[in-house]
Computed example of a mutant assay.
Amino acid sequence: MLRPIDRLTTPQTVIICTNFILGTGILTLPRTALEKVKTPDIWLTIIIAGLISMAVGLIIIKLNEQFPEKSFYEYSGEIMGKWMGKIFNFLFISYFLLICGFHLRSLVMVTSYFLLEGTPSWAIMMPFMWLSVYLAVGGINPIARVFEIIFPITVILLLLVLLMSLKLFEVDYIRPFLGSGILPVLHGIRTTSLSFTGFEIFLFIGVFMKNRKKAKKAVLFGIGIPVVLYIITVILVIGALSIDGVLGRTWPTITLIRSYEITGLIFERFDSLFLVVWIMQMFASFNISHYVASLGLAKTTHKDRKLFVYVTLPLIYVIAMIPKNVDDVFHLGDFVGNIALLLIGVLPFILLVILKMKGKKYEEQPSS
């Protein structure tokens, strides 16, 4: 049984999902999407990828509804069998540990490159890792309350700094509409979909919702908010930097924010302020992944979750230190995204089909 303190409100669930999806993606999406699409119509690709993610999210909710008092870690064995369920549990645990390593290394990379140049990686990692331990030991509710603080700050500041760049915006850079047809837009769906990985968190936190009848609403809003933020970001970044300008930058969103000044304000340049706030966003993605990984180990082995919060730290540190440079970090992100497409894009649907088949068999038995 869940403690009352472990329950989440619908807005908290939406915020956890949104924070997890945003992560590092908003800093790199304009470049990664353009590398595939090659046209300014990537906002259409984002819409299509968002709708696909919503459809898969609703399948996840439908699957959860069959086991209202259990998370995926607990009901996987009931659908697939004890040992197969444990195998998939460990696959998801490994997936979340990889996400931890990716976000932690991305956080270090952005911090050391733009803010604390020359600072050793371990010195940046350690405070964030121990802060994550503090929150994860406390449980899902303290995490949700911290996310409620981070979310409005990051969204308001993101919109503020992007809208202040409108003086650099050139409409011609986002024209013509579908100038190369629809095929380039469709070609970029897979790459863009990687930026929406994170809604799979509903497989594991849906059980914590106070009002599970609003789970569908939560998943739609949890994915819909990043869709809107992504569209605004890519349109303004491409409109200010042009396609060639975006493709030539590793972090195009940060480049845009660094390219203008507003005189007469307390802050004339907003890049450092934006980065400090967005580091909190990356930490949020790291933290919830840390919690879900430790939760999975606890549910699968029937041990104390708090123990695994500590046990997973060395693993996360090793994963975060494996990439040697920026390209390696992005390759790790692509690898994690490809795993997500297999685990989240296919598995929930298959499990739901298996459940339906079992249900049909069960109903047919009395009449035979």
Rank of each mutant, 00 (worst) to 15 (best):
M1G: 12
M1W: 07
T9L: 08
T9W: 09
Q12C: 04
C17H: 08
L34F: 04
T39Y: 05
W43S: 03
I48S: 01
L51Q: 02
S53R: 10
S53C: 10
M54R: 03
L58K: 11
I60T: 02
Q66I: 13
Q66P: 03
S71V: 03
S71D: 15
S71M: 10
S71N: 14
G77L: 06
E78M: 12
G81C: 07
W83S: 05
N89D: 13
I93R: 01
S94P: 03
Y95W: 11
I99Q: 03
I99L: 12
S106G: 15
V108L: 09
V108I: 15
T111Y: 07
F114I: 04
L115I: 13
L115R: 01
P120D: 07
S121K: 14
W122P: 00
W122M: 13
P127C: 07
W130C: 10
L131T: 14
L131K: 10
N141Y: 10
F151K: 06
P152Y: 10
I153W: 11
L159P: 02
L160I: 12
S165N: 09
L166N: 11
L166C: 11
L166W: 15
K167N: 13
V171R: 09
D172Q: 15
I174P: 04
P184Q: 06
H187G: 14
R190S: 14
S193F: 14
S195T: 09
G198N: 02
F199T: 00
F199E: 04
I201D: 00
F202G: 06
F204P: 00
F204S: 00
R212F: 09
A215G: 03
A215Q: 11
K216T: 11
V219H: 04
F221M: 15
P226G: 08
V228L: 15
L229Y: 11
I235R: 04
V237E: 06
I238D: 02
S242R: 09
I243G: 01
D244W: 11
G245V: 09
V246E: 06
T253R: 03
I266Q: 06
F267G: 05
E268N: 14
R269K: 14
F270Y: 14
L273E: 04
V277T: 10
W278F: 06
A284N: 11
I288N: 00
Y291M: 00
A293I: 02
F308W: 15
Y310H: 13
T312L: 12
Y317Q: 05
Y317R: 02
M321F: 12
V326R: 08
V326G: 01
G333F: 02
F335P: 05
G337C: 04
L341V: 09
L342R: 08
V346T: 09
L352T: 13
L352C: 09
K360Y: 15
S367T: 15
